[in-house]
Design a protein around this nucleic acid. Structure first.
Lengths: 168, 168
DNA sequence: TATTGTTATACTCTATAACTATA
DNA sequence: TATAGTTATAGAGTATAACAATA
């Protein structure tokens, strides 16, 4: 998956190449009409817009997802969030370290189980989240710009059915 | 993006944890109803099925895409394919090395420009492609299992409109 | 014994910089 | 000067293994 990773870091010499407006339109053979291929292209376009939108706030999709879940479920255990998001708990550690280091959330020893960390948003985290929700609104409107409300809802419903094939 | 990377390599001791059927169903807050979030989840499910389907053939999505384009456009230059797929030419080298090393395609010095490599499928590449197309058929039917024909076509159309926001 | 959080580590994907051989 | 292919390298994301503290 082509993830637009970061803002281009400024170095000292000539880059690989400037992206020339559009990729050459050539016949993609049987790729056309494949759900997997179109899904990937759509996801890529959305990620592009996401990174552009949240560059200032320096927030990545997984980070926003954590904040969103935590807003609704204060005190949730670290691993519960990780599994809900499909992230291995081992990779989740660094993600939470980052958010905690920025003062957006804090780990508290959980009641009744001193192994687990219960996560809580800080005031600063809640404040940032308010700002992020406004940015998200802009982002969402931009990527759904070509769709009317009924189409947007239908796309969401169809995507949900695709996403659920794994538990069929 | 959570890409199912490889077949689990067998090591010598206990793994991180067995994935227990389903992630706990908890309230995801404002993530629900977001195009970007549902798109990611759908893409993930499709990738899961793709890797499962093509594990035997040991073919990844980008590799299949190259073979598909090459079948329709024999002799296309390396960089033309790379840009069409949104892959940087610098990262494309290894991909083509792999396919060439497996005898599936070959690089030929292009007529009129000895800098470029014109890519051509070998007989072996064409043979594998026939097999891959049958596997792809199974894969595609599986991920679209919950949709009738009209729904599948509509999903493709909606995805295409999302994918095109970048060139708006 | 099993689970939570953690560190260490490896592989893949994507990115930039710089080289070469051609044009 | 510019372009095609290439190498080297770095940063994310995701994977497994193993350990300490706790259950």
């Amino acid at each position: 998956m082509t993830k637009p990773h970061r803002k281009p870091r400024r170095h000292n010499a000539a880059p690989d190449r400037p992206a020339p407006g559009e990729p050459p339109r050539l016949d993609l053979g049987f790729l056309n009409g494949l759900l997997g291929y179109m899904l990937r292209r759509a996801q890529l376009a959305v990620y592009q817009d996401f990174f552009r939108t949240f560059a200032d706030a320096n927030v990545r999709p997984a980070q926003l997802a954590v904040l969103a879940i935590l807003e609704r479920n204060p005190g949730l255990k670290q691993t519960a969030i990780a599994t809900a998001l499909g992230i291995k708990r081992t990779n989740f550690v660094g993600l939470i370290d980052g958010l905690e280091g920025r003062g957006l959330l804090e780990r508290r020893v959980a009641d009744h189980d001193r192994r687990s960390s219960a996560l809580h948003l800080t005031d600063e985290g809640r404040a940032l989240l308010r700002r992020l929700k406004r940015m998200l609104d802009v982002h969402e409107r931009r990527i759904a710009a070509g769709l009317d409300d009924a189409e947007r809802r239908q796309l969401l419903a169809l995507l949900e059915r695709i996403a659920d094939i794994s538990r069929a």
